[in-house]
Design a binder for these strands. Structure first.
Lengths: 302, 302
DNA sequence: TTCAACTGCTGCACTTTTTGCATCACAGAT
DNA sequence: ATCTGTGATGCAAAAAGTGCAGCAGTTGAA
């Protein structure tokens, strides 16, 4: 929609933090962009950017305005997708911010399934930790967030909660392989590979050993869940992940998942949510519904 | 804001129902307006108006769009007023849809009080019956609605409820004058003047006589509360109104109000509310707060 | 029917707005 | 002091929007 170019420009300048930089990204000259901003500030009667030696930054009036602008822009997307829906075609774009566990198996399958029904819908999948995922919702960079054990929930409207017990993952020739359930102590008697500190699984494990005689002494640490899953194939270590990030229990490629006794490690929760107060575009809402039902089939949800 | 001219035009066309008519109202030529609409429809990919022999009307895509547009326009007003508030000046416009009872005393006083504090704020006061007041909220023609006993509350978010017992109003020389409380039967033994059927007070009275031996046989009917108040001065009739629409009990100009026993006539409720899900501009929100506290001082509120 | 009055739409000339180039003034980093 | 980055501005070209006159179509009354 042409008539919103000015506000798109403001959004870009706010994100990029410099008029010249945003101009380049928008493929126009800085002159045109600068003039549009001056014009808007003139109409508004107050400046919305403070000019710094290294660029511009929103002032408080600008902060108010940018919230309005981003709502306006994403509402327009919703309206367009609703209107497209009227004529039978479902189109649109769904932007998802999620944690690593969703990347290898779950989301690719779900997106493929959705796109086979509605090929006009495009997807964006962005890896974000818990705090950044909520931030992405707030500045409308994402429609949906799927995160494990989120910290704060101020602007987060929960659509779904899925319990995810922490599972030990071992190679199929590891001594623990084939067990039905494990006590945490058993796992920790072998060399372990852990995600780095700020991830949800690590947090749950830290909580678990708190006040017990057990200690977490990882031989390998990584911020890549994919690396950890492959580490158990390469050497005889135990790592911990949540079910949704693991391959199907049948026919898995050489790894073995065993739930850890919930008496030792509290069960984590995976949350799907959206920005509080926002109305999602048709495509995003329907995709969220699909995810909900897919998760309900696999796990107990609430 | 210049950049919203196109959507303002669409709003006008939708309200007026004809391009040429709207063009005249907007002080431009029909050519320009027509072209803007064609351009928007072109960008959107679908028409938003259906062309009728006598003008245009929104189609279903247009209905979706107009909701978005009106939200956008009124949100901009809120943003502007919030930004103005940052610099200390409270400006803006408050549009109120209300029933007749608010017009003679209450609203003029309240608006005068508010404007003495914030002269930059302008007001619009629109007489609407209960259904139309809610419609005015929905299409953003009003920020606040103050109505008596509203019928449906689908898009209405109640901000305040004030009980308003039905009062008999008589001239100061009427036989009933000076009483503290009246039974309905006493009133109906005199000639009565009533509001026409669809008003709240009339409705409460109709309910009251339902299934009793009493009957409402008005000698005068009017849709003007002002006329009814003056009727009791001109001849010896009894009429019925709610307290907020009556002059101060002390020093009133020749009329006398006496509550009707609530055992006979159920107490009505005055509602103040806004459009559900909307965030009001600063001025409207503060005015609503002032009204709330003013009413809380006078009546029991909930 | 016939005609007037209304509708939305369109080609062309004109006006207004927006854009881009070259340049300036300023602030921090080197 | 120099250099590199920033946003702002005068001026001319390009683009977008506007108004006039006139088109085709429908409705409703004579």
């Amino acid at each position: 929609m042409r008539y919103l170019t000015s506000v798109r420009y403001i959004d870009a300048v706010a994100r990029i933090g410099s008029i010249r930089g945003a101009a380049e990204a928008l493929a126009i000259t800085s002159t045109a962009l600068n003039r549009r901003i001056l014009a808007i500030e003139d109409e508004l009667g107050v400046p919305i950017f403070e000019r710094l030696p290294r660029g511009v930054r929103l002032n408080s009036a600008g902060e108010i305005l940018i919230h309005y602008i981003r709502h306006q822009l994403s509402d327009l997307e919703r309206v367009r997708s609703q209107i497209a829906d009227l004529s039978g075609v479902r189109r649109g774009h769904v932007a998802i911010a999620c944690s690593q566990a969703l990347l290898p198996y779950f989301l690719p399958e779900q997106i493929a399934a959705y796109r086979s029904e509605h090929p006009q819908v495009t997807f964006g999948v962005h890896l974000r930790d818990r705090a950044d995922a909520e931030a992405a919702l707030v500045d409308h960079a994402a429609d949906l967030a799927i995160v494990f054990e989120p910290v704060r929930l101020a602007d987060f409207h929960t659509l779904l909660r899925v319990p995810q017990p922490v599972c030990a993952v071992v190679g199929e020739r590891h001594p623990l392989a084939g067990r039905d359930i494990l006590r945490l102590g058993e796992c920790l008697s072998y060399p372990i590979a852990l995600p780095t500190a700020h991830y949800g699984v690590r947090h749950l494990l830290e909580v678990a050993v708190q006040g017990s005689a057990l200690r977490l002494e990882p031989t390998v640490e990584s911020d890549s869940f994919e690396f950890l899953r492959h580490a158990v194939l390469a050497e005889s270590v135990v790592t911990f992940q949540i079910p949704i990030g693991l391959p199907d229990p049948d026919g898995q490629g050489g790894t073995c998942r065993i739930p850890v006794d919930p008496r030792d490690v509290p069960t984590g929760v995976l949350y799907m949510g959206q920005l509080k107060g926002r109305v999602l575009p048709v495509a995003a809402a329907r995709f969220a519904a699909q995810i909900s039902s897919a998760l309900a089939d696999r796990y107990e949800v609430s």
